[in-house]
Every structure is written in C-alpha cells, then in structure tokens.
Design a protein around this nucleic acid. Sequence first.
DNA 1: TAATGTGAAGCCTTTCACAGCA
DNA 2: TGCTGTGAAAGGCTTCACATTA
Lengths: 212, 212
Amino acid sequence: MKYHKIPDEAVRRLPIYLRGLLSLSEQERKKISSQRLADFLGVNHWQIRKDLSYFGGFGTPGTGYDIEKLIRQIRKILKLNVVHKAALVGVGNLGSAVLRYPGFRIYGFKIAAAFDNDPKKIGRKIANITIEGISNLHTLQKRKIDLGIITIPCEATQETFNKLITAGVKGVLSFSRCYKTGRKKAKVITIDIVMDLARLPYYIPTSQVAKV
Amino acid sequence: MKYHKIPDEAVRRLPIYLRGLLSLSEQERKKISSQRLADFLGVNHWQIRKDLSYFGGFGTPGTGYDIEKLIRQIRKILKLNVVHKAALVGVGNLGSAVLRYPGFRIYGFKIAAAFDNDPKKIGRKIANITIEGISNLHTLQKRKIDLGIITIPCEATQETFNKLITAGVKGVLSFSRCYKTGRKKAKVITIDIVMDLARLPYYIPTSQVAKV
DNA sequence: TAATGTGAAGCCTTTCACAGCA
DNA sequence: TGCTGTGAAAGGCTTCACATTA
C-alpha cells in the first residue's frame, strides 16, 4: 500500500466494479482484464486499475483479475463482508419503496427495522418488517443496527438525524439535505432527488428548452 | 463572465443555494450575506461567493445579496425559469413514490406523463396522472416533454433509455446505472440508491463494524 | 465598516505512458 | 505478447487572502 490518501471518488466507484464483477461471475468466466470490465461497465480501463491500485494490486500481469478473488477483495475493502443492518425512518411513499427494494441483499445489507411516528402505521408490516414508533429508536444499538436510512420530509430530518446518532448509528443515508452534522459522529451520504433533477436543464442547449 | 470553464460542482450546488434562498425569502428578509446563507445551509461562505462569481457577481459589497433578485438569477442560470415537463417510466414502488413526491414544483417541474409496460397498470391514475403504455413514448416530443425519469429494474434500463432519447428527451434522471449513453445526445444524471448505501460501511471505523 | 469578487496557491482527481511481470 | 501497477503530467476544484467597492 503505497498511497497515503485514497480518493473518495475511488471508493465511490468500487461498488460499481463490484456489481459488474457479480454479473460477470454468473457467466462462468474466471478471469477478466481491466479492459473487458471497463467495456462492460462503460468506464475507462486505466481508471479501474488505478482505483484498485490504491488498495494494493489484485491482478496478474498478462492475465488479468481473478473474478471471484477480486469480488472478495472489494467486499473486504468496503466492509461488505459482514452483514450490515439498517434502520429506515419514515415509512411514506419513498420509505415504503426503499423497504421493498430487492437490490440490497447482494451487497450484504438487511433492512432490519422501520420506524414512523404515525400511530396508524405502527404495527403494520411492509416487506416483512413491522413498523415501530419513533420512541423505539433507542433500541438500535442493542440490536446491532449500525446504519440509518432517512426518508422523511425535510422539516423533520434534523431531529431524526440527531436521534439516529444518539442511538449509535455510524452511517446515514439521507434523502433530504435538511440536516447539519454537528460534531460529525457518523458518515452521511445524501440523495436529493429533486436537486439532481434541478440541475438537469442547465445542460440542455438553450435552443432546445421549450418556451412556454 | 471571466471564466472559461464552469465547474460541474458549482452547478450541482446552485440548487442548494436556491432552496436556502427560497426558505429565507419566506421570512420577509430582503438581503442576505454569503456568510449568513452559508451558516443557514451548513456550507462555506467563500464557496458560495466563488460559485456565484462563475456566472457573474450578483451581490453588493458591504450589503450582500438581494434575495429575490438572486433567486431569479439562479433560476435563469439553471434554466428553471421555464416550466419543464418530465415523463416517468416505470410505475413500480419507486416510480409511484416519485410521482407522488410534492417537492418538484418549487423548481418549476411538472411530471406530465407516466409510462409502464404492465397492462394492468395502464389507465390507472397516480397523483392525477394517467399511466400510459410504453408504446406511447414516441408522443413525448409533440407534448413538449423534455426530461425523462427512469425508475425501472436494471435490465430494462438500456432499452427505455434509448427510447427516451429517440423520443427527443434532452435530459434523463436514471435510478439505475445499467445503461450506456452511446453518442450522448442527452445529459444523464444517475441516482443509485444501493450503491450509495454500499460505500457507507467503508467509512465506519473497523472497530465499530458489528461482527456477525 | 462590512461585505463582495477574484487571482493565486494548494489540493485532489484523472489521464497518460510505460516499466515490469507472467 | 498481453496486461498490470504506477510515477508523472495535466486538469479541475477548493481554499485563502485581500483588493475593491457601496
């Protein structure tokens, strides 16, 4: 390991490579070159090699990478080699959709609990998970839940965020940007659907923006 | 305008500033300094000034920025000063949630159509939008719909993506990374929920990763 | 005085080119 | 020969300090 600082961007790309490798491993292929993986994913081959080199080289010159082995390595780097339990807060439209999302398992995630403050929702089941009241949040640490997913309206995000941190959560995926992290006890990643949509028109040539 | 190249990152932040300004404008405040806006949003004041300077200065030294004026300017830069119509493809759990999402309006978006290939869904209404069959996609241009939102499983993304481009869509928000853009006739922004979650454990100190 | 706008420095990331290995 | 791993160059973004302006 010759590098002092590993770019966040490299970390961000690892899950992409992992998904590609998982796809390819189903095709009873054993080895793959950075070039082939890059073509498969639509990225650059040197980027893949550089990114992997930050964590130590995993390939064989002239041959390429052993798919199964590389999958294990990336899982280990991303700490996906243990199952992570996540708690979701806010079982509205978006929260329900995330609860029902089937794609978490291949990365070793399990949404283990769901919370809402609407008494009508408490006790109901979605995707086999019984919805609990917000007052139960303090039980997360005991239940070894280390990740939180926040899918509630902007206004209530800060309070929920604070409660999750207090409950010992170490990483948060938030669907709104309405929080401040304070003394940063956890890593937060924000997904803001509306804001991502909001910067799309910027890239459309003006001549093609429909006049109203 | 003294700059040749405007950072994508600056463009990405403009919608954040815009949201802050919209919040503050409700509080009958007229002027704001970069410092106060920065504190409100939890960002750096020099970053705000720098970002705005790429598009020309909008402030008054010693006084700050006129909130209403700055809102108009940012809207214009982002081309949000005209209403954009978007088509959503894939009315599953996630698609339905996005259709029902109330936050699009303040940025001037209107989801004007929804498509699905499930005959059982076609004709049903969600959030006042009647679901149409995929075969209707070609009507988008006529209907002046210039944005697409893809909320379908990975496997079908590429085909849908191609159809949207053919239908004249100029910007796409995709909820899966399973596409290749080809000759890039449109700007694409990808939101990949699972992959964002997948890089969260990396940042959790190993001692705190629950052993299973 | 109080705040903006910006050149320059520093830092981070991507890209390139190729030495070195199987 | 084919492919990896990496130093170095190039490019892009953030941070800083301060000249400037109302």
